[in-house]
Simulated assay, not measured.
Amino acid sequence: MDEQITGKRFLAVTVLNVLITVVEIIGGLVSGSLALLSDAFHNLGDSFSIVLGYFAQTIANKPETSKRTYGYRRAEILAAMVNATFLVIVSVFLIIEAVKRLQQPTHINGEIMLLVAVIGLVANLLSAILLYAGSHSNLNVKATYLHVLSDALSSFAVIIGGVILSFVNITWLDPVLTIAVAAYIAYEAWPVIKQTVTILMESAPKLDYKGIEQDLIQIDGVTAVHHVHAWMIDEKRIIFSAHLNCHDMKLSDVEKIYQQVDKLLNEKYGICHVTIQAEYHRGKDEEFFDTNVDEENLIK
């Protein structure tokens, strides 16, 4: 199945989330369930997030231009960060409200809570199925998928609470369920935030740099490697640049080395874009990474 999620699927998921929101707001007000109202506002945010994710995907597919030489792929990274950050903020808000409810418990109508939660679970599961295809290969879709999946989990938790409250009036159950679901949502969203920040800060991707250095030096004609930089445009595309010290040779022979470097870095390390500067003696004594900063002292 295509990694890109179609506009029709995004539209279907958005419509489902809007319908769930309306039903859960009504059900939450009638039943008095904080967990149900929390899930309703969560779904309302999801509708915005899904639309944002769709437009980000559309923008990301635009071709490179003279103003955006790497294209617009980071639009999806920005959308993923916004979506995941929103999830964490919502989770904190839900926990605060749940703690207040623990201090001032209210009666919950378990039957209404159960019925509405079942409707929400079915709709959220349908949405998750529609988004599942692209959730493993795209951070933007993954963030949107996590929104929907967390809603499904929330609905399932509310169902359990509704079943119990239909028979026993446990005043603390509804806010405790809310806290548990909110904590899970934040737990799932945090890694997405960390990864998007890593990409936007152009941090070095996790590569075997020592292995890269050894492999490049093994290429016939290469004597040293320095001034290395590596960063990511999105979660799949790694950019790499380096200076190679080579034997004194013709430019046509240097091009053959370039071809070997491109093939090596692409096939063995998954690097999609390589920029190499060939040099004879200049910079030969420089370090592999071009930095004069003591990173440990900088962190301290």
Rank of each mutant, 00 (worst) to 15 (best):
T144I: 11
A204D: 00
F288T: 08
S49M: 03
S66E: 14
G110E: 13
T14R: 04
V88P: 09
T85W: 10
I199A: 05
I160Y: 07
A80I: 01
T196D: 00
S154H: 00
G45H: 01
V158C: 13
K300A: 03
E64H: 09
N140H: 01
V23S: 10
Q218E: 13
L200F: 12
G71Q: 07
A189H: 01
T65A: 11
T291N: 15
S66N: 14
M201V: 06
I238L: 12
G211V: 09
L165P: 06
T58V: 10
P175A: 06
V92W: 06
L207C: 03
I129R: 11
G283I: 08
P175T: 05
K206W: 05
D220C: 05
A60G: 05
P205K: 01
M1P: 13
L149K: 00
S91C: 08
L207F: 01
P175I: 06
E64R: 12
V181Q: 02
I89H: 08
I217V: 15
S135N: 09
G134Y: 02
Y187I: 04
D253Y: 01
V90P: 08
T275R: 09
L265D: 03
D285N: 13
D248K: 14
Q277N: 13
A56H: 05
V122A: 10
V118H: 12
A230G: 00
V82F: 15
C246S: 12
V168H: 14
K142S: 00
A224V: 02
A117Y: 03
K263L: 13
K256L: 11
S155K: 08
L29A: 14
V181F: 00
L265A: 05
I170A: 13
R282V: 07
A152T: 02
G53L: 01
E202C: 09
N124I: 02
A189G: 03
L131M: 06
W172P: 12
K206G: 07
V30K: 11
